[in-house]
Design a protein around this nucleic acid. Sequence first.
DNA 1: GCTTTTTACTACACGGCGTTGCTTTAATCT
DNA 2: AGATTAAAGCAACGCCGTGTAGTAAAAAGC
Lengths: 351, 351
Amino acid sequence: MANLRFLRGYNDAVVLGLARSGAVTRVELADRSGLTPQAVSKVVSRLIVDGLLVESGTRNVGVGKPRTLLKLVADSRLALGAQVERDELRVVLTDLAGTVLDRAVAPLPRDFDPPTFVEELNRLVDGLRSDRLRSDRLLGVGIGFVGPLDHRTGVVHYPTGLTAWHDVPLRALAEKRLGLPVVLDKDTNTAVVAEAWRRGEELRDAVLVLVGTGLGIGMLLDGRVHRGVRTNAGEYGHTTIQLDGPPCVCGRSGCIEALHNLAAARGDLVEATSIVGVAVADLVQLLDIDHVVLAGRAVLAEPAAYLDGVRARLPKDEWLPVDVSITPLGDDVVAAGAAMLLLSEFYGRPR
Amino acid sequence: MANLRFLRGYNDAVVLGLARSGAVTRVELADRSGLTPQAVSKVVSRLIVDGLLVESGTRNVGVGKPRTLLKLVADSRLALGAQVERDELRVVLTDLAGTVLDRAVAPLPRDFDPPTFVEELNRLVDGLRSDRLRSDRLLGVGIGFVGPLDHRTGVVHYPTGLTAWHDVPLRALAEKRLGLPVVLDKDTNTAVVAEAWRRGEELRDAVLVLVGTGLGIGMLLDGRVHRGVRTNAGEYGHTTIQLDGPPCVCGRSGCIEALHNLAAARGDLVEATSIVGVAVADLVQLLDIDHVVLAGRAVLAEPAAYLDGVRARLPKDEWLPVDVSITPLGDDVVAAGAAMLLLSEFYGRPR
DNA sequence: GCTTTTTACTACACGGCGTTGCTTTAATCT
DNA sequence: AGATTAAAGCAACGCCGTGTAGTAAAAAGC
């Protein structure tokens, strides 16, 4: 279905998305969005009334009236984002521009259960929002969890190592306890949302590779996060890369994750990064993406080695340059992305 | 950009897409599209005026006025589709429902050049359109070509084995010679369009695996064909599946295609189909799709074996059933999909 | 220093979109 | 036969982006 409300929301999101990249003018917005100048004027005035944009000076580009610069009011809306790992909970506060303003980290007990988790989440969230936060600016909380889970219904299915989590309606539980809107997604997806939200239209086809104890990816395809039929896409760690390779915990053998972890365990960094490199090269060919972002504990421990390992394995065709980088958000990428996922529910393009 | 014309085109396409699956009523269209009954009435009356739909009887579902059945006028619009292989050109005529009405096949000379090809294409197209075709119903021609090529600009880059094809603006050449709108896409993409167009909303996340001399895939993700930044996505044949495997023509080693072709060459059908099965299982995990369609000369020669090989390797989790099938379009799938790609340019959802 | 030109931006009427509220039509139920 | 139920159409409406025309503010020309 598509109606006029959809139309307006869509165009508002397009303009706001362009404004996120930095100071712009109405004329540039019209050029880059394809909207007419009048439509841009209307959209911009709506956004100014809502406090999301402000005029900030002028820019002269030749003869004629100088263009009015428009700037995002980054702190007009804020969101919290949480990363849930098997041993740790991290919550960050970000603004509309995707800047991390504050963070809190707490350990989680071994094999924690849902009530324990929700209480701990509430404690960290309260700590972050009490400080300087007028509550009307805080939009909600995003949660990046390990899969499998269902993004649409907000239910955690049965993550390995967390025995008390079978079909837990986490979004509903958290919304009730926190009194705030909550969105739930896989950690790899929130991580790629972080990159997409911050870099805007520039990033349309990208993969974020999260290398920790496992190896998962978040896919941004044609500007949208690809989640698959059951929010389960991105399970790349258990892709076969050596048909007759060593057995893996997943039951199959020769998986990327198994080979990588074996190499890493015996201290063979070159081999470990090379396996990630081959795997990423395969992805680039399969999906035809132009950006690869590396993240996760393993990568952040040896960023240069992983960068080299991946870059060395990529196809060298000059007409297909692939940009490989380490996430500038570091350990915050999953939590910050969860916050931006929530921002995008309010200010991203409607579905 | 999104304006009112976009809005109308979008809703028209939604309704027409639902009507493609078979006879429907306005009430059902409203339910399934999310549009209000009144909006559906307006859309339907537009489509009836354009000759795309007709009322055809009533269906009684209880008390009250019976629902009016609406039927797609399948032959109100027609399109031609071409498949270009290294030794053969195939052109088919399809209607709005995706039914193949007629076909023509001709051999192509070894390492044919663009002018030769365009002439041969024109000859086959003329043969098909002279017969019974009032030209106002024929919308244009779609071409499924081997990659790499650029779907947006309609330029063929440099397919291996065709030395005269370096950056050839095939879409422009063909449009000029045929006097019809032309779209160009990779053969794997047109093939998956064929499945998507025929099966409608039912098919939203699927992969079509085309096994011939090479192994390529077409990806339908969230209802849209994923082409990647440079229309080059789907090069799955050269994905590494055996790190220390035999060298491949692509310069790397242990590629799916190399291993499959080696097994097939030595007549080991079990091994060949098993390799495709592992590769497809990897894809299902990575992309979280629920439909896999097998196609291509190798598959059509041994359909049962490939079906078994793939089904045996898929994860058995009951909550993730994956439907595996052989394309019912057989050898026509690429050409028919090219025709449907052209239909979708006119009657599919606008971008 | 004044006018002209160029460019940025906006006020307003308009056509087109889906929506709302009501009416008409055509079945079944009592 | 009348009541009830459901489908579908009609008309008024609110809101969307657009087209036209106008205003504002700078540089350029003389």
